[in-house]
Amino acid sequence: MTDVIEAILQRSSEPRLSAPAPSADELARLFECAFRAPDHALLRPWRYLIIEGEGLHALGELYARTGDSEEARDKLRKMPLRAPMVIVGITSPKPHPKVPQIEQSMSTAVGMGYLLLALNEAGYGGMWRTGALAYDSQVKSGLGLAEHESIAGFLYVGSVSSEKPAVPRPIMSELVSSWPAKP
């Protein structure tokens, strides 16, 4: 197998992350990978925010504004502290007659996937999270998103602090078929 195929087969989502996170120099190289995502018409319909240090506490406070009880707000405040770095992937679509917004969103998602692969290959772990916070107008506004932008996800990033059990892999015959069907 090639190194790329092996990296893809070994990739996993890692929920238990600790310091260190990638350095600025490492991030520059990792983002080069994200920027290689398929991008119809070279629109670059994405941007990223890197949140670490005190920014994680500020993100927790932003999350907490969405809670409907003190217990929920406390839980939301702690969420960004699950990792030493959170990278927010943002779809920033550009008007184009041949490239619909959905293609631009998919380009952002592929870039996020490439970033996860690159993080794993560089010796770090990551966990892509979305959920209600990714769609919340207060969160989007608090992060400085324009009206036309959306959050593709929050990548929680750091060093893997403990291994998790292996995830069962899908069986190809259950998910892949030929078309038209062969007799």
Score class of each variant (00 low, 15 high):
Asp74Lys: 08
Ile51Lys: 04
His40Thr: 06
Ile90Leu: 15
Val99Ile: 10
Leu62Met: 11
Pro97Thr: 09
Trp46Lys: 05
Met85Lys: 00
Thr91Cys: 10
Gly53Val: 01
Leu43Thr: 11
Gln101Ser: 08
Leu59Thr: 10
Leu59Ser: 11
Lys98Leu: 14
Ala64Cys: 14
Asp74Trp: 07
Met79Lys: 10
Tyr63Cys: 13
Arg65His: 05
Met79Gln: 11
Leu81Asp: 04
Pro45Lys: 11
Gly53Asp: 00
Val86Glu: 07
Glu52Phe: 01
Ile90Tyr: 13
Glu71Arg: 15
Met85Phe: 02
Arg73Ile: 02
Arg82Asp: 02
Leu43Ser: 14
Arg73Leu: 01
Glu71Gly: 15
Gln104Tyr: 02
Arg44Cys: 13
Tyr48Glu: 01
Gly55Met: 02
Asp68Thr: 12
Met85Ser: 00
His40Ile: 05
Ala83Asn: 13
Leu59Gln: 11
Ile87Cys: 09
Ser92Tyr: 07
Pro93Phe: 04
Pro93Gln: 05
Asp68Ile: 08
Asp68Arg: 12
Pro45Asn: 10
Arg82Cys: 05
Leu76Arg: 09
Arg65Cys: 03
Glu52Lys: 03
Gly60Arg: 02
Ala64Ile: 14
Lys75Cys: 03
Arg73Asp: 03
Lys98Asn: 14
Glu54Asn: 14
Glu70Ala: 00
Ile102Asn: 00
Ala64Asn: 12
Leu49Trp: 11
Ser69Phe: 09
Tyr48Gly: 05
Pro100Lys: 14
Lys94Leu: 02
Glu103Cys: 10
Gly55Ser: 03
Arg65Ile: 06
Leu42Gly: 15
Trp46Asn: 04
Ile51Arg: 00
Met79Val: 07
His57Ser: 11
Ile87Met: 07
Lys98Ile: 13
Arg82Asn: 08
Arg65Asp: 07
Lys94Thr: 05
Tyr63Ile: 07
Pro97Gly: 06
Glu70Pro: 01
Ser92Leu: 07
His57Tyr: 06
Arg65Thr: 12
Glu103Thr: 15
Ile90Lys: 13
Glu71Val: 11
Leu42Met: 15
Ala72Thr: 05
Arg77His: 12
Glu61Val: 03
Ser92Phe: 07
Tyr63Leu: 09
Pro97Ala: 14
Glu52His: 00
Glu61Asp: 06
Lys98Glu: 15
Gly89Pro: 09
Ile51Trp: 02
Tyr48Val: 03
Ile87Gln: 07
